[in-house]
Design a protein around this nucleic acid. Structure first.
Lengths: 141, 141
DNA sequence: TTACAACCGTTAGGCTGCCCAAAGGTCAAG
DNA sequence: CTTGACCTTTGGGCAGCCTAACGGTTGTAA
């Protein structure tokens, strides 16, 4: 398999595949005649695995680490910690999103029946100090 | 209010405030003596508004657009479309996350009782073509 | 055979939303 | 007057890609 084929099958662009390869997440062997990168069937699995973890917001270095566990004979069997952790992250993020969505809903109910003044909204944000600080900042993701 | 004060009150760094200012989302006036940027109370509201939308994944250009609606007299009152849209996005993203989490749950149930082979998992991803294609790709966010 | 499109490779740069460092001006307190 | 905390701008870096440019390769078809 060459880049484009792997990319298409995996549902990403060839550039993305090349990027993962540059970062060492995929290790194709090279056709010595032309220098083309050739990927085997396992690469497709790895690509899908990477893609899945990426969609969870796992960073490339982290994914690389997880993949190395799979590669090393030492970790033929590992505990499901990494994925479980990610699943936990997911649920947390989903909840966070819903909280924010509900906050906006409240804002809507307070100030807007069928239309609202954005100016008023912004001004109210400038004064509602305590409300905001109760919710606190946890930084964005 | 100078940068640091606004930043601290708004719960972001001074650099972030400066960034928003550079991008035209905040418009301080300048102290002619020393060139310092001075923000009024409305800026705090704007900052919180920006911060809120950012946490929803709204891009700075989009936020700038929304703010311009508030600034233009023409849009003293606007429909709640932008926020409603964002709220919709939120719910969608939350759902997406939960779907993925459930997918991982299924993977866990299928292949892992108390420990699992990551290699097997990756290999299975390489062959389970139809499963993956049914879920389709919508790109990451 | 030759021409051409469709691939491949690498390098280099850009994008977003910031963060950080450097070099220098300003200002209030001691 | 110095110190330290602020302010300014410039320029660079970070992830995770995308795009362009330049040139080699491959396969097909005239």
């Amino acid at each position: 398999m060459r880049v484009s084929e792997l990319a298409q099958t995996g549902g990403v662009t060839a550039e993305t595949v090349r990027h993962y390869t540059r970062e060492g997440l995929l290790q194709p062997h090279r056709d010595p005649r032309n220098g083309y990168q050739l990927y085997d069937a396992e690469s497709l699995g790895r690509l899908r695995f990477i893609d899945c973890l990426r969609s969870l917001g796992v960073s490339l270095p982290e994914i690389k680490q997880i993949l190395s566990w799979a590669d090393q004979g030492t970790a033929e069997f590992i505990e499901p910690v990494p994925l479980a952790t990610q699943r936990g992250r997911l649920y947390l993020r989903a909840q966070e999103f819903q909280v924010i969505a509900r906050w906006i809903d409240n804002m809507n109910q307070d100030k807007m029946t069928e239309s609202f003044s954005l100016k008023e909204l912004i001004e109210s944000l400038g004064s509602r100090k305590s409300d905001v600080e109760i919710n606190d900042k946890r930084g964005h993701h």
